[in-house]
Structure formats: C-alpha cells, structure tokens
Amino acid sequence: AEKTGIVNVSSSLNVREGASTSSKVIGSLSGNTKVTIVGEEGAFYKIEYKGSHGYVAKEYIKDIKDE
C-alpha cells in the first residue's frame, strides 16, 4: 500500500540513511518534489530514493495520498 506525498520545505529536505536525525544524510530533495512512501518509522517516512530507500522527517511531507 504505497502512498505519495509532496516535500513541503522552502529550500531542501535531507534524505537520511535511517529513521533518525543522527543518521547519515545520503541526499536531499527540493520543495514540491513528489515522493513515494513505502513505510514509516517513528517520526520518519521511508521513501523510494535513487533506486533504493531513504528516510525523511514526516513533518516536512504534505498531501499524503494513497496510490
């Protein structure tokens, strides 16, 4: 049951290796980017990222929809 969301930041949002603010940053997404959410862990969504997965803070994702 995948969902999509939109990155809701003015600059960019860090994509992390794990569901923690201390996890390594593996990339970033600019505002209004559409993401595919494959799961959630605590305050983070697990998303599809560059052929693999990454984690982003839930508070910066809006317009969550079921695909």
Rank of each mutant, 00 (worst) to 15 (best):
V25H: 04
T4W: 05
T21M: 13
G54R: 02
Y45M: 03
A57R: 14
A1N: 14
I6C: 08
K65D: 10
E41R: 07
F44D: 04
Y45L: 07
A43G: 14
T4A: 07
F44Y: 13
E48Y: 12
T21S: 15
G31E: 10
V25N: 04
G39M: 04
V15C: 02
G27S: 02
N14I: 13
T33N: 06
L29T: 01
K3S: 07
G42C: 05
L29P: 00
K34W: 07
K24E: 08
I61D: 01
F44L: 02
G51F: 06
S12Q: 12
N8A: 15
K58I: 07
S10Q: 14
E67T: 14
T33Y: 06
G18I: 08
S22L: 10
F44R: 01
S23R: 04
S12W: 10
K46F: 05
K62F: 11
D63F: 11
G39W: 04
Y55A: 01
T4K: 08
E41P: 01
N8L: 07
I37H: 00
I64D: 07
N14S: 15
E67K: 14
G42H: 07
K58E: 02
E59T: 07
S22D: 11
K46A: 06
V56Y: 00
K58A: 06
G27H: 02
I61Q: 01
S11D: 15
R16V: 08
K24T: 08
K65L: 10
K50Y: 10
I6A: 05
V56I: 10
K58H: 03
V56F: 01
F44E: 01
E67H: 15
L13W: 02
Y49I: 03
E41W: 08
G5Y: 03
Y60L: 07
S22K: 13
T36Q: 10
E41K: 08
V15K: 00
E17F: 08
H53N: 06
I26K: 03
S22P: 03
V35T: 02
Y60R: 05
G42L: 06
E59A: 10
K58Y: 02
K46R: 08
Y45E: 01
S11P: 11
G27V: 02
K3I: 11
A57V: 14
I26V: 08
T33V: 09
V15F: 02
S52L: 13
Y55W: 15
S28I: 12
K50P: 02
V15Y: 02
T36D: 05
E48M: 14
I37Q: 00
R16Q: 14
K24G: 06
T21G: 15
S28Q: 14
A43I: 09
K46M: 10
F44G: 00
I37K: 01
E59I: 12
K65Y: 12
E67L: 10
A1S: 13
S20E: 06
L13H: 03
R16L: 15
E59G: 07
F44M: 04
V56E: 00
I26E: 01
E40G: 05
T36F: 15
H53E: 08
K50E: 12
A1M: 13
K46G: 02
N32M: 13
D66C: 06
S20K: 07
K58Q: 06
T4V: 11
K50A: 13
I61G: 01
G5S: 04
E41F: 10
E40S: 07
H53S: 07
K50D: 10
E2F: 06
Y55P: 00
K62I: 15
V25M: 06
Y49P: 00
K62W: 08
G42P: 03
L29I: 15
V25Y: 04
Y45K: 01
E2G: 13
S11G: 15
Y45I: 05
N8Y: 05
V56P: 00
V9P: 09
I37V: 05
E17T: 06
S20D: 12
V15P: 00
A1L: 12
V7H: 02
S10D: 15
E17Y: 08
V7Y: 01
E17N: 09
T33G: 03
G42M: 05
L13M: 08
S11R: 08
E41Y: 09
G27E: 01
A57S: 15
G31Q: 11
T4H: 11
G51W: 07
V9G: 11
D63P: 11
G18T: 14
S10K: 11
S30W: 13
E40H: 06
A43R: 08
A19K: 03
I61L: 08
A57P: 14
Y49K: 00
K46Q: 08
S10V: 12
A19D: 02
S52E: 10
A57Q: 13
V35L: 05
I47V: 06
E59H: 08
I26H: 01
K34S: 07
L13E: 03
E67N: 11
S30F: 12
H53L: 12
G18P: 01
A19Q: 03
G54K: 02
T36G: 05
Y60P: 02
S22H: 14
Y49E: 01
G5V: 04
V25G: 03
E2Y: 06
I64Y: 10
K62L: 12
T4M: 08
I64G: 06
I26S: 02
E41N: 09
K3N: 05
S11Y: 10
G39N: 05
S20T: 10
K46P: 00
G5P: 02
N32H: 12
S10H: 11
H53D: 05
Y55F: 11
V25K: 06
L13I: 15
I6N: 05
H53I: 12
A19M: 05
S30K: 14
K24S: 07
Y49L: 04
K3P: 05
T21P: 15
G42D: 09
T4G: 05
S52K: 12
K24V: 09
G18H: 15
V7C: 04
D66H: 09
T33C: 06
I6R: 09
A19N: 04
G51E: 10
Y45N: 01
V25D: 03
E41G: 03
T21R: 11
Y55R: 00
E2H: 14
G54L: 01
E40K: 04
A1K: 06
E17V: 08
D66G: 09
N32P: 05
E2I: 15
G27I: 03
G27F: 08
K34F: 09
K34M: 09
K34D: 03
I37L: 04
G18C: 09
Y55H: 02
H53F: 15
S12H: 14
L29N: 00
I37N: 00
T4I: 14
G42Y: 06
I47E: 00
G31I: 09
K65H: 15
S30G: 13
Y60S: 09
L13C: 09
G5R: 04
G31S: 15
E48V: 12
G51A: 09
G39Q: 04
E48S: 11
T4R: 09
V7Q: 02
E2M: 13
D66Q: 11
T36L: 09
S30Y: 12
K50I: 07
V56S: 01
S20N: 12
V38Q: 06
G18V: 08
G5D: 02
S52D: 07
I64T: 09
K58D: 01
E48W: 10
I37F: 01
E59Y: 09
G39S: 08
K3D: 03
S12I: 11
K3W: 07
V56M: 02
S20P: 02
S52R: 10
T4F: 07
I61W: 03
A57M: 14
A57H: 10
K50V: 09
E40T: 08
V38A: 05
Y60M: 10
S30R: 15
V35Q: 01
Y55L: 01
S28T: 14
A57D: 15
S30N: 12
V7D: 02
E2V: 14
K46L: 12
S28A: 11
K58V: 05
N14A: 14
I26M: 06
K65P: 10
A57Y: 15
G51I: 05
I6M: 07
N32Q: 14
I47M: 02
E17C: 06
L13G: 04
V35H: 01
S23E: 05
T21Q: 13
I64S: 06
N14D: 15
V9E: 07
S22A: 12
E17M: 12
E67S: 12
G51T: 09
G5C: 04
G31N: 15
E41Q: 09
N32S: 08
I47A: 00
S12M: 13
K3L: 09
I61E: 01
I26Y: 02
K62T: 13
A57T: 07
G42K: 06
I6L: 09
G54D: 00
G5M: 05
I26C: 04
Y45P: 00
S52Q: 13
V56T: 02
G27A: 04
I47N: 00
D63R: 07
A43Y: 08
E48K: 13
I6S: 05
N32R: 10
A43H: 11
G51C: 06
G18R: 12
I37A: 01
G42F: 05
A19P: 09
T21I: 14
G18W: 12
S28K: 14
I64P: 06
G54P: 01
L13N: 02
H53Y: 14
A1I: 15
V35S: 00
E59L: 11
I47F: 02
G18D: 09
V35K: 00
G39D: 09
E48F: 08
D66P: 12
V15M: 02
K58W: 03
G51D: 12
A1Y: 11
Y60W: 10
S11T: 15
S22W: 07
K62G: 12
V38H: 05
T21Y: 14
V56G: 01
A43E: 13
K65R: 13
I6G: 03
E67F: 04
